[in-house]
C-alpha cells in the first residue's frame, strides 16, 4: 500500500458517499445516469467475487463490502425508491455498445483464461467506460448539479491517483499490470474534458453548463 493508492481509495469512497448522500438527502436522482450506476455495480460485483475466497486484509475486505453495498444501494434508490425523479428521457446511452465489446475483449486479452480472471478483466475494462452514460447524459441535458460535479471529480481523480500508484509500484516493486494500466489511462482520459470544465467553472463558483 502506498499513499497514492490510499488517496485513490479514499477519493473513490468519497465519490460513492457523495452520490449516495445527494440522492438520499435531496430524495432525487435528477441528473444521475442510472445506467452508469448499474455498470458500476456490476464492475464491483464481477471484480470482488474473491471477497469470499481470498482474504487480503481487513481494509481490503471491508472496502469491497462498502463499495458493493453502496453501489447496489444507489441503483436501488435510482430505480426503485426515487424512480419518479429518474430522468430516463436523457439517460439514453446504449450500454450494449459498451458491454458487448468489453465482454469480447475480456475473453481475448487477459492474464489467464480462467473464470475469475476473465471476470476481473471484464470488470477492469467495463469500469474504464462505465462513466460514459453519465457524461453523455450531462451533454444531453447541457448541465449538471454542482454536487454531481463533485461526485464526478472524485470519481475521476481516484483512477488518476491509481495511475501514479502504478508508477510508484513499478519503480519500487517492479510490479505492473498492463491491463489495469491501459484501462486506467482510458478511464482517466475520458474525464479530461470534464476536469477542464470543473476547474474553469465549478471551482470558480459557476454552474457547470455545456454549450448545448
Amino acid at each position: 500500500m502506498n499513499i497514492f493508492r490510499l488517496a485513490g481509495d479514499v477519493s473513490h469512497l468519497v465519490a460513492i458517499i457523495i452520490l449516495l448522500l445527494k440522492i438520499w438527502k435531496t430524495r432525487s436522482c435528477a441528473g444521475i445516469s442510472g445506467k452508469s450506476q448499474i455498470l458500476f455495480a456490476s464492475v464491483f460485483v464481477t471484480r470482488y467475487l474473491d471477497l469470499f475466497t481470498i482474504f487480503i486484509s481487513l481494509y481490503n475486505s471491508s472496502m469491497k463490502i462498502i463499495y458493493i453495498s453502496c453501489s447496489i444501494a444507489t441503483v436501488y434508490l435510482v430505480y426503485f425508491k426515487f424512480k419518479a425523479t429518474y430522468d430516463g428521457n436523457h439517460d439514453t446511452f446504449r450500454v450494449e455498445f459498451l458491454v458487448v465489446p468489453v465482454g469480447g475483449l475480456s475473453f481475448l486479452v487477459n492474464h489467464d483464461f480462467s473464470p475469475m480472471e476473465i471476470l476481473w478483466t471484464f470488470s477492469i475494462y467495463l469500469e474504464s467506460v462505465a462513466i460514459l452514460p453519465q457524461l453523455f447524459m450531462i451533454s444531453k441535458t447541457g448541465e449538471a448539479e454542482t454536487i454531481t460535479t463533485h461526485y464526478l471529480f472524485f470519481l475521476g481523480l481516484y483512477r488518476g491517483l491509481y495511475l501514479i500508484n502504478w508508477i510508484w509500484r513499478y519503480y519500487f516493486e517492479g510490479f505492473f499490470d498492463l491491463i489495469a494500466i491501459v484501462a486506467g489511462l482510458v478511464q482517466t482520459v475520458l474525464y479530461c474534458d470534464f476536469f477542464y470544465l470543473y476547474v474553469t467553472k465549478v471551482l470558480k463558483g459557476k454552474k457547470l453548463s455545456l454549450p448545448a
Binding site: 487480503i56 481490503n60 469491497k64 463499495y67
Partner: peptide, 10 residues
C-alpha cells in the same frame, strides 16, 4: 519485474 497482478488492489 512482476507482470502478474497480485489481487491486493481494489
Amino acid at each position: 519485474t512482476i507482470l502478474k497482478r497480485e489481487k491486493d488492489e481494489l
